[in-house]
């Protein structure tokens, strides 16, 4: 099976590989796995006090499509609000990367990772707000 040019490009030059400090309250971390193939994806977002994603990083251990899907996801996430980020669908990734049917689960994994990272940072914000409130 041949990968599309875009997949190969993201695979050879992955964007935004790396990590943020997981404990940073402005960082949301999503770690998800695909039990079918054993691919593991970590996606992190750094959110400004205004609720805009300033930066995004990922680490993916898996096939080319999984790496390309998460690389593309981090590109798309930057500059988006949390609500906008929640709108990213796996089908958008499939379309952009021209993923074949057997690789669609890679895009699902990226969507799951985004959702997990968003949920994580929202949870942190709630606790921070809670702590500030109880401190007052």
């Amino acid at each position: 099976m041949a990968y599309s040019e875009k997949v190969v490009d993201h695979y050879n030059n992955p964007r935004n590989v790396g990590s943020f400090d997981k404990k940073d309250p402005s960082v949301g971390t999503g770690i998800v796995g695909a039990p079918e193939c054993g691919d593991v994806m970590k996606l992190q977002i750094k959110v400004s006090p205004q609720g805009v994603i300033e930066d995004a990083k990922f680490k993916t251990f898996g096939c080319g499509s999984a790496i390309a899907s998460s690389s593309l996801a981090t590109e798309w996430l930057k500059g988006k609000t949390l609500d906008e980020a929640a709108q990213i669908k796996n089908t958008d990734i499939v379309q952009e990367l021209a993923l074949p049917p057997v690789k669609i689960h890679c895009s699902v994994l990226a969507e799951d990772a985004i959702k997990a990272a968003l949920a994580d940072v929202k949870k942190k914000q709630m606790t921070t707000v809670g702590e500030t409130a109880s401190a007052l």
Partner: peptide, 11 residues
């Protein structure tokens, strides 16, 4: 989640 984190750490 510990297993997935383990994977990331070892990798």
């Amino acid at each position: 989640p510990e297993l997935l984190e383990d994977v990331i750490e070892v990798q």
